[in-house]
């Protein structure tokens, strides 16, 4: 996965749709040092939004303690197979990204 690429998987169990996101990102907390002892600047994702049929259904704020290549799982009810699910993200450097899939059974 290149930086910023988004993987979205959906699974339906009973009446619940599980949305599993994985976004390629360094998630540097800003507290680590490199081999020369220089602090590595913070670089982390700050926000993820999930849209269902172009309507925002989830807004997630993240801090620098989320692990590298964040994996986030959410659960939704009332989705329909084939409808569009879109994910957008932004990091503390202002880099943005998005991806979308169709809900699968």
């Amino acid at each position: 996965m290149s930086t910023g690429s988004v993987s979205i998987r959906t699974r339906n169990v009973d009446d619940t749709t599980f949305v599993e996101l994985r976004i390629s990102h360094p998630m540097e907390p800003g507290t680590r040092k490199d081999k020369q002892g220089v602090v590595i600047p913070a670089w982390f994702m700050t926000n993820i939004q999930v849209f269902y049929k172009d309507m925002s259904v989830a807004n997630l704020e993240l801090g620098p303690l989320v692990s590298r290549n964040p994996a986030v799982s959410l659960a939704m009810k009332g989705t329909q197979v084939g409808e569009k699910l879109k994910v957008t993200w932004v990091d503390n450097r202002g880099v943005v990204g998005e991806s979308s899939v169709k809900v699968v059974a």
């Binding site: 619940t16 998630m27 907390p29 269902y52 925002s56 259904v57 989830a58 807004n59 997630l60 704020e61 993240l62 801090g63 303690l65 989320v66 692990s67 590298r68 964040p70 994996a71 986030v72 799982s73 959410l74 659960a75 939704m76 009810k77 009332g78 989705t79």
Partner: peptide
Amino acid sequence: KVAEIDTSHAMLVPRLSTHIQL
């Protein structure tokens, strides 16, 4: 603060899972 999720939308189940670095 690790994460904050707005779960007020009727479609969203108030659950969250992720991984953190400690």
